[in-house]
Lab assay of single mutants.
Amino acid sequence: QTQEFDNEEEARKAEKELRKENRRVTVTQENGRWRVTWD
């Protein structure tokens, strides 16, 4: 699953929550947008 964010702060917040659920999370930056991908 993927979700896009406008800034790193929001993306990192989402990453932190997903990691609490023991998910594999990848955060990438593309064209000024932050993308959080998880399984």
Rank of each mutant, 00 (worst) to 15 (best):
E30H: 11
F5L: 01
Q29P: 07
K13R: 12
F5W: 03
R24L: 13
R12L: 08
Q3D: 04
D6N: 07
Q3A: 12
A11I: 01
T37Y: 12
T2P: 03
K13N: 11
T28G: 03
V25M: 02
E10W: 04
T37E: 15
R35E: 11
E10P: 02
A11R: 00
V36L: 06
Q1V: 13
N7W: 04
R19C: 09
T28W: 11
Q3R: 13
R33A: 06
R19M: 13
E15T: 03
R12H: 05
R19D: 04
E15D: 02
T26S: 09
N31T: 03
R35G: 02
Q1M: 13
R12I: 05
V27W: 00
E4F: 15
E4Y: 15
G32H: 04
E9M: 09
T26Y: 09
Q1W: 14
Q3F: 14
Q1F: 15
R24K: 11
E21M: 14
E8Y: 06
K13T: 11
W38I: 15
K20Y: 07
N7Y: 07
W34P: 00
E21L: 14
D6W: 07
T2A: 08
K16D: 10
E21V: 11
R33P: 00
W34L: 00
R33Y: 10
T28I: 11
E21N: 12
Q29S: 10
R33Q: 08
R33T: 07
D39E: 15
R35K: 15
R35W: 13
T28R: 05
W34Q: 01
R33G: 04
E15R: 02
V27Q: 00
W38Y: 12
R23F: 15
V25W: 01
R19V: 11
N22H: 13
D6V: 07
V36E: 02
Q29W: 13
G32W: 01
E10L: 09
Q1G: 15
E30R: 04
T37H: 14
T26A: 08
D39A: 05
N22T: 05
L18N: 03
E21D: 11
R33H: 10
E4S: 10
V36T: 01
K16V: 12
D39Q: 10
A14W: 15
N31L: 06
V27R: 01
A11M: 02
V27P: 00
L18K: 05
V36A: 02
E30L: 10
E30P: 02
N31D: 10
E21R: 10
T37C: 13
E21H: 14
D39W: 14
N22K: 10
R23N: 13
E30A: 10
K16R: 13
T37N: 12
Q3L: 15
K16N: 13
V27A: 02
E30D: 07
K16Y: 12
G32N: 06
E17A: 13
A14D: 01
A11E: 00
V36K: 00
K16M: 13
T26L: 07
N7G: 04
Q3P: 02
D6R: 05
D39N: 07
T2N: 06
E8L: 05
E17F: 07
T37M: 10
E10N: 05
E10D: 15
N7Q: 05
K20P: 03
R35A: 06
E4R: 04
T28F: 08
R35M: 11
E4T: 12
E8T: 01
V25P: 06
L18A: 08
E17T: 09
A11G: 01
V27I: 09
E10S: 09
K20A: 15
L18Y: 06
E4M: 15
L18P: 01
Q1L: 13
T2C: 15
E15C: 09
T26Q: 07
Q29A: 08
E4C: 14
R35P: 01
K16G: 10
T2Q: 09
F5V: 01
R35Y: 15
V36D: 03
E17L: 12
E9R: 08
Q29Y: 15
K13Q: 12
D39M: 06
E10A: 10
Q29L: 13
T2S: 13
D6P: 06
E17C: 07
E8K: 03
V25T: 05
A14G: 02
T2Y: 15
Q3N: 05
G32D: 08
V25K: 00
E9L: 11
N22W: 12
W34V: 01
T28E: 07
R12V: 04
E21F: 10
Q29G: 06
K20T: 08
Q29N: 13
L18F: 06
E9N: 09
L18H: 08
D6E: 11
R12W: 05
R23G: 08
D6H: 05
E21T: 13
D39H: 08
E10F: 04
W34A: 00
R23L: 14
R19E: 08
N22E: 06
Q3C: 11
E17V: 09
W38L: 12
E17Y: 05
A11P: 00
E4H: 09
V36N: 01
E30W: 06
T37L: 06
R24N: 15
T26M: 09
K13I: 11
E17W: 07
W38T: 13
D6Y: 04
E8S: 02
R35L: 15
Q1N: 14
R23V: 13
N7M: 04
V25G: 03
V27D: 00
R23M: 14
V36M: 03
K16E: 12
N31A: 06
N7T: 15
Q1T: 11
G32L: 04
Q1E: 11
N7I: 05
T37V: 11
G32Y: 02
E30N: 06
K20N: 10
K20M: 12
R35Q: 12
E15F: 06
W38H: 09
V25D: 00
A11V: 03
R33S: 07
R19S: 10
W38K: 02
E4D: 09
F5Y: 13
L18E: 02
K16H: 12
E17D: 09
A14Y: 15
Q3I: 14
E9P: 07
E8W: 05
R33W: 08
R24Y: 14
G32I: 01
A14M: 14
D6F: 07
R19W: 11
N22G: 15
R24M: 13
W38G: 06
R33M: 11
N31M: 04
E15L: 05
V25F: 02
W38V: 15
R24G: 09
E17M: 11
E21Y: 09
E21P: 04
R12F: 05
E15M: 08
F5A: 01
K13F: 10
D6M: 06
R23H: 15
T2G: 06
N7H: 06
E4W: 15
V25A: 04
N22D: 10
N31Q: 06
E30T: 09
R24Q: 10
R24H: 14
K16W: 09
V36R: 00
T2M: 14
A11N: 00
T37F: 11
F5E: 01
V27K: 01
E9H: 09
R12M: 08
T37Q: 12
N31V: 02
E9C: 07
E10Q: 10
N31R: 04
E9I: 10
E15Y: 07
K20L: 13
V25C: 03
R19L: 15
T2W: 15
K16L: 12
R23T: 11
E9W: 13
E21G: 12
E10K: 05
D39I: 10
W38F: 09
A11L: 02
E10V: 03
T28Y: 08
E15G: 04
A11W: 02
Q3H: 14
A11K: 00
N7S: 14
W38A: 13
E15W: 05
F5K: 00
E4I: 15
A14H: 12
V27F: 02
T2L: 09
E8D: 02
Q3K: 12
E8A: 03
R23S: 10
Q29K: 10
T28N: 05
Q29T: 07
W34I: 01
V27G: 00
T37W: 13
R12Y: 07
D39V: 09
W38P: 05
L18M: 08
T26N: 07
E9Y: 11
Q3G: 03
V36H: 01
